[in-house]
Design a protein around this nucleic acid. Structure first.
Length: 268
DNA sequence: TGCCAGGCGACGC
DNA sequence: GCGTCGCATGGC
């Protein structure tokens, strides 16, 4: 069945290609196909929203939550307009939403992201899923679960070509599978608690923890500071982040990330 | 070729 | 606590 979602703040391409997720592919007709958990979705942009190809009403509800349908982005963008730079970045990227992704997938993905670039991160994650994930459709694989990954050796993961990150992936999988880290408990934690908790995993520092808290748990106080954002804050916000970011620093961060990354790409 | 990429851990001070 | 370095890999 096709579910029509009407909303004025949704740009599928920018949302899915803004570096917060790595399992979506653009199809020849311009629609996108992606996987989360054991679900597959095809989503197509409409002028006033999107068309979702889903199996059931329950599937539609899952994906609406994934795309953060309850947050009023127009209101957040108005709030951001109090700052000149952020206002411009937000207006230009008003269709970007912060996804609510599966925690384990997000954790492993951003462990892989460190000192890496987006095309290669996507490649490593693709090989990880094809090698160790359950097949859920023709040529489509779920993200492998913690139990599966925890049973593997560094040699097993060598074909991923993930380099020094392999031991971090395995440490995360072992801790999640053993229960030493309970990812479900983080939903109820504060941002600071979640950050310290995630950092008990080897290979998870401030940046990776912030990405997981923002892109899986939707803790919008998180402000992941990568090399791009560090340049932006050094140039525009040396005296501190603007007041108008409020509790939505993470959303602001994503608009700024896209705004400046695009400009750097044009200059090259 | 050297430099960089959605960083982190180890180490020295 | 803070600065520096090495780390695998691949694209430019």
């Amino acid at each position: 069945m096709e579910y029509i979602w009407k909303t004025d703040c949704l740009d599928i391409a920018r949302t899915l290609e803004s570096g917060q997720c790595f399992r979506w592919r653009r199809q020849e007709d311009g629609s996108y196909t992606g996987i989360s958990g054991t679900r597959i979705l095809r989503i197509r942009q409409l002028p006033d929203g999107a068309a979702l190809t889903v199996g059931s009403e329950e599937g539609a509800r899952y994906w609406l939550r994934y795309f953060d349908s309850e947050t009023d982005y127009a209101s957040v963008i108005r709030q951001f307009s109090a700052d000149k730079t952020l206002g411009a970045a937000a207006r230009e990227n008003r269709g970007i939403r912060i996804l609510r992704q599966e925690p384990f997938e997000t954790l492993i993905s951003f462990i892989i992201s460190q000192n890496n670039n987006i095309p290669r991160i996507t490649g490593i994650i693709g090989r990880l899923c094809e090698s160790f994930g359950t097949r859920i459709a023709d040529g489509e694989y779920a993200f492998p679960d913690a139990e599966t990954l925890a049973a593997l050796s560094p040699e097993d993961l060598a074909p991923l070509r993930a380099g020094f990150r392999v031991r971090y992936i395995l440490d995360a999988a072992v801790k999640v599978h053993s229960g030493a880290v309970d990812l479900g408990s983080i939903y109820a934690m504060t941002y600071d608690e979640g950050r310290e908790y995630l950092k008990t995993i080897t290979g998870v520092g401030d940046k990776v923890a912030d990405c997981v808290l923002l892109f899986a748990y939707h803790k919008t106080e998180a402000f992941p500071a990568d090399v791009w954002i560090k340049r932006v804050t050094a140039e525009y916000y040396a005296d501190g982040l603007p007041e108008c970011m409020g509790e939505y620093r993470g959303i602001a961060q994503q608009y700024l990330f896209e705004y400046f990354r695009k400009r750097a790409a044009v200059r090259k």
